[in-house]
Design a protein around this nucleic acid. Structure first.
Lengths: 147, 147
DNA sequence: ATACTAATTGATAATAATTCTTGTTTAGCT
DNA sequence: AGCTAAACAAGAATTATTATCAATTAGTAT
């Protein structure tokens, strides 16, 4: 099954005009083995067991390519710096992918989101947040339709 | 009104055994003026107009104190490094505040969350995510009750 | 199979956000 | 006014990430 996946990936790499290198395959395999939601550093350590010469840069670049190919996706928002909010009332956010602008959304329905019972047994919930990501009015790509 | 807020803050600082300094007041005021969801750097630039000698460190420390006093709260998760996921199926997450472990949650109901119409007109939604934060089974603080 | 070319690699330097260290200053108490 | 722990400024250290660049290599054309 992993065989199958690797084949898939190599094809997609080539189809997108990218080259398939042993390093890239190793990064992808490490990604699959890891199971969870690995960091670049975790992948790096894993791959380095087989490719001691691989550079961190290569892992970053491979991850970028994989994101580009939509094989993996980054978890959570991609704000590069911590941000804070002053409104204590429970609310949620829209985050613009382009300009990183965060806007508050107040909507009672969003507060009623519930974690499924089965998960709740294993996880002590402190809170939750709903984050819509997309493009704000200023950054909306021309021609794109609102849905 | 800002007067009122400042008074509030100074009291809370003192009540928690912290000292009230002009720098701290200035950081808080910059925070209020900023309006949005400022970064530390934005606050720093703002405050420096009145306190050219203030150090970035002081801003960081003040923000930490304000978070501690629950005057402000950080937006979004607090993962220190990028993480990736390989499962393409739409799903959501629990994030452990302590160990940062991310677990997938599959629940159709969470996918039906909708951005209010009024906001939708101004924001082109690409997707949304629901993130529950709290403590995983391994990190659950002893004596804490599940709700 | 060989050669060519552009993509990729590894090493290293550069950024950027955040934290740590240290010696000096100061708020709040007595 | 004096004491002392907290807070300050300056700058070094860390950590995640990105950029630079010469050397290597995958994939294609020959």
């Amino acid at each position: 099954m992993v065989e199958r996946s690797v084949r898939n990936i190599t094809d997609r790499f080539r189809q997108s005009g990218r080259k398939v290198t042993p390093q890239r395959v190793a990064v992808f395999e490490a990604l699959c083995e890891g199971g969870g939601h690995p960091t670049v550093d975790q992948i790096y350590r894993e791959v380095r067991q087989r490719f001691p010469m691989i550079s961190l840069n290569t892992v970053y670049q491979t991850m970028e390519a994989l994101v580009d190919l939509k094989v993996v996706s980054p978890v959570g928002h991609s704000l590069e710096a911590a941000r804070y909010e002053t409104d204590p009332a429970p609310h949620h956010h829209t985050v613009c992918i382009a300009c990183k602008r965060i806007t508050d959304v107040f909507d009672a329905a969003l507060g009623r989101v519930k974690l499924p019972r089965a998960v709740k047994d294993r996880f002590q919930v402190v809170g939750h947040r709903v984050e819509f990501y997309g493009y704000c009015a200023d950054c909306r790509s021309p021609g794109a339709t609102n849905r």
